[in-house]
């Protein structure tokens, strides 16, 4: 039972990353009709916002310490971050320590700007172009972004730890009446889940309760008609793209303590997020969220030894290798438009 609870938590956690990326992706599909292969890259840019902020905060003054030697035996350079010299050592270290949560504030304007530039500069010209062209151009863009990041940050993962206060693990099981140590869960992963729920909630509330959201939803239903009403749909679509970018970016920022970011993390998530969107149903926001959590949880269950051996007994070894795709196939064959997709979206 505790094992199942643990995997549900894991699933929710993975699911929140999938859901956040898929949410933006399906928003872009639904409103703009664009297949955005650069969406994974947006997630990656978000993660590197956190890395960048960490780098900015640790920009240091350099002094030479003749006592210590570096690897060549020369006197060693000692670096003191300016943040520490400005705010004092304790405060400075605290700020650096909290750089990942702080990066949220940094990432929102950056991601909105990236989204704006992408939409106005490139995507805008591709609304009326075939999906194949959209795929090619956004894929090209994704490669370019990836290579730029690789050039500045290298190919290796870069550690961006969570603040000390949120780094430990938390005995979640005790709350639910399990034995101590039965369900231990990392604090930051719980934070990630809560944060995702908050962002998802905010996006839905925004679309549900604001005039802007109403127009976007109307636009998802019928783009031409809304255009005829004289509403400046294009400007709103630009903002939509910005929001989608920001959501992906935030998912990236908060993901960095879970797995150290590297330049190809976007590509790693790209295929998966498309699968999530399609399983959820094209153009359906609740579908994307539902499918994200569903696939996350199923993936976690498939990793359990008991499940693996069960499937091995029925000649399906390594079920965890293929579970996502297997589920996608089953869902698509039983429900033609995914879990909650609408007729006619992206079916041609």
């Amino acid at each position: 039972m505790d094992a199942i609870l643990l995997q549900i938590l894991n699933g929710l956690d993975k699911g929140s990353a999938y859901a956040l990326i898929a949410l933006g992706l399906t928003l872009i599909f639904g409103t703009l009709g664009v297949v955005n292969f650069a969406h994974g890259a947006l997630f990656m840019i978000g993660a590197f916002c956190a890395v960048t902020l960490q780098k900015i905060l640790t920009i240091s003054s350099v002094s030479i310490d003749p006592e210590k030697k570096d690897f060549l035996g020369n006197p060693m350079e000692v670096k003191t971050p300016y943040v520490e010299s400005i705010f004092g050592e304790a405060t400075g270290q605290l700020i650096i320590n909290w750089s990942v949560p702080l990066a949220i504030l940094f990432a929102i304007p950056v991601m909105l700007a990236v989204g704006y530039i992408m939409e106005r500069g490139l995507i805008k010209h591709f609304y009326k172009r075939p999906h194949a062209d959209q795929i090619l151009v956004t894929f090209g863009l994704a490669i370019v972004i990836q290579e730029i990041v690789k050039h500045y940050y290298g190919a290796n993962p870069i550690p961006t730890p969570a603040p000390d206060a949120l780094r430990g693990s938390f005995d979640f099981g005790v709350l639910l009446g399990f034995d101590p140590n039965a369900v231990i869960y990392p604090l930051w992963r719980l934070v990630y889940f809560a944060f995702s729920a908050l962002v998802i909630g905010a996006v839905f509330a925004f679309l549900q309760f604001t005039t802007f959201g109403m127009v976007v939803r109307a636009g998802m239903a019928d783009r031409e008609t809304v255009g005829l009403l004289g509403i400046n749909i294009d400007r709103r679509f630009t903002l939509t793209f910005g929001i989608a970018a920001a959501v992906a970016g935030l998912a990236g920022v908060m993901y960095t303590p879970i797995n150290s970011p590297n330049y190809h993390m976007g590509m790693d998530f790209l295929v998966l997020s498309f699968v999530v969107v399609v399983v959820g149903g094209m153009g359906s926001l609740p579908g994307a969220v539902l499918a994200g959590f569903l696939l996350g949880i199923l993936e976690s269950f498939a990793a359990m030894n008991e499940v693996k051996s069960f499937f091995e007994a029925i000649y399906l070894p390594s079920i965890d290798q293929i579970i996502i795709y297997l589920v996608a196939i089953i869902v698509l064959l039983t429900r033609p438009r995914g879990l909650m997709g609408r007729r006619g979206v992206m079916e041609e």
Binding site: D2, A3, L6, Q7, L9, N10, G11, D13, K14, A17, N181, A182, I184, P186, R189, I258, N259, M265, D268, F269, E299, S300, A303, M304, N305, K308, S318, D320, Q321
Partner: peptide
């Protein structure tokens, strides 16, 4: 001995059962 897929990026599901 648990085999993990090459494409795994998040190992939480494999790590979680270890403690118990």
């Amino acid at each position: 001995n648990v085999l993990t897929p090459l494409a795994t990026t998040d190992f939480s599901s494999y790590v979680a059962p270890v403690l118990n």
